[in-house]
């Protein structure tokens, strides 16, 4: 098994992500649409959660964990508001991009194949 780990985020990138979280958190939420990812959790007895998807969930998981660790280097006592800000920033950046179909399945890019 390959044992690998990613290098820590460069300080500049941590700064940029924190600045983005700050920017998003300062929006006026009264009138804007705010994309969010919500995790589905089955609490019923005998529930057998399915796994699945196209791998985008694992990308989100990795980015969330990485963002939390980066934030912790600046502020050790993280709380619920920090999770909200992290997920808000994650959704703002990846809500659309991770919904795009894979290149070969994007029918508008391959009209000959689709027809």
């Amino acid at each position: 098994m390959i044992n690998f780990s990613l290098p820590p985020l460069p300080e500049e990138e941590v700064d940029a992500r924190l600045a983005d979280m700050e920017r998003l958190g300062n929006r006026d939420y009264k009138e804007i649409g705010v994309p969010m990812f919500l995790v589905a959790e089955d609490l019923t007895e005998g529930a057998r959660p399915r796994s699945g998807g196209d791998g985008s969930g694992r990308i989100l998981a990795l980015l969330l964990a990485e963002g939390a660790e980066a934030l912790r280097t600046r502020r050790p006592d993280l709380d619920a508001e920090d999770i909200a800000r992290l997920i808000e920033a994650l959704a703002d950046r990846h809500f659309l991009s991770l919904a795009a179909p894979s290149f070969s399945r994007a029918t508008e890019l391959h009209p000959e194949t689709a027809s």
């Binding site: 804007i32 969010m36 995790v39 796994s51 969930g57 989100l60």
Partner: peptide, 25 residues
């Protein structure tokens, strides 16, 4: 925080994600 984060990371990595857009007014 860590417990909540761990649960979210587990759920996301399993692909258990709902996509929502919140609007008020």
């Amino acid at each position: 925080f860590d417990e909540t984060l761990a649960a979210l990371v587990r759920g996301l990595s399993a692909g258990r994600v709902l996509r929502v857009v919140n609007f008020h007014a």
